[in-house]
C-alpha cells in the first residue's frame, strides 16, 4: 500500500507509519505487537499503520531502502525517520517518532 496523496489535508500531527517485516519470524511478530501497542497508547486516532511483509513484496525492499528488518518508517510527518529492531524498547521508539518531546 502506498501513501495516499489525497491525505495531505490531514492535520500535521497525523502519523503515517509503515512496518516492514520478513515473514513470521519472532522478531517480526514482536515488532508488530510492540508497535501496535505503542501507537495505541500514544497516537490513538491519529495514525495509519501498515505492516508489509517483504517476502511478499521483495521489490519494496529496494524501493524503500530497507536493509534491516524489522524497519518502521515514519512517512509523515516529515522528516522521514526509520526505526529498526523489534520495537521492544518503547522509549527509543518514541524518540524515533519524535513523540518524546510532546510527552
Amino acid at each position: 500500500m502506498k501513501t495516499n496523496p489525497a491525505q495531505p489535508k490531514a492535520e500535521s500531527n497525523r502519523y503515517i507509519l509503515r512496518l516492514y517485516v520478513a515473514g513470521t519470524s519472532p522478531k517480526s511478530a514482536n515488532a508488530i505487537t510492540n508497535i501496535k501497542r505503542i501507537c495505541e497508547e500514544n497516537l490513538q486516532g491519529r495514525y495509519e499503520l501498515k505492516v508489509i511483509d517483504l517476502y511478499q513484496q521483495p521489490q519494496l525492499a529496494q524501493d524503500e531502502q530497507i536493509i534491516a528488518v524489522p524497519t518502521l518508517i515514519r512517512k509523515l510527518p516529515n522528516p522521514l525517520r526509520r526505526i529498526i529492531g523489534d520495537m521492544s524498547n518503547t522509549e527509543r521508539v518514541l524518540v524515533g517518532l519524535d513523540l518524546r518531546k510532546n510527552a
Binding site: 514482536n30 517476502y55 534491516a68 524489522p70 526509520r82 526505526i83 529492531g85 527509543r92
Partner: peptide, 14 residues
Amino acid sequence: EESGEYDLEGLFIR
C-alpha cells in the same frame, strides 16, 4: 533509530 533486535533480512531479500 534502533529499538531492539534487528537483522539484515532486508538486505538478503533485496
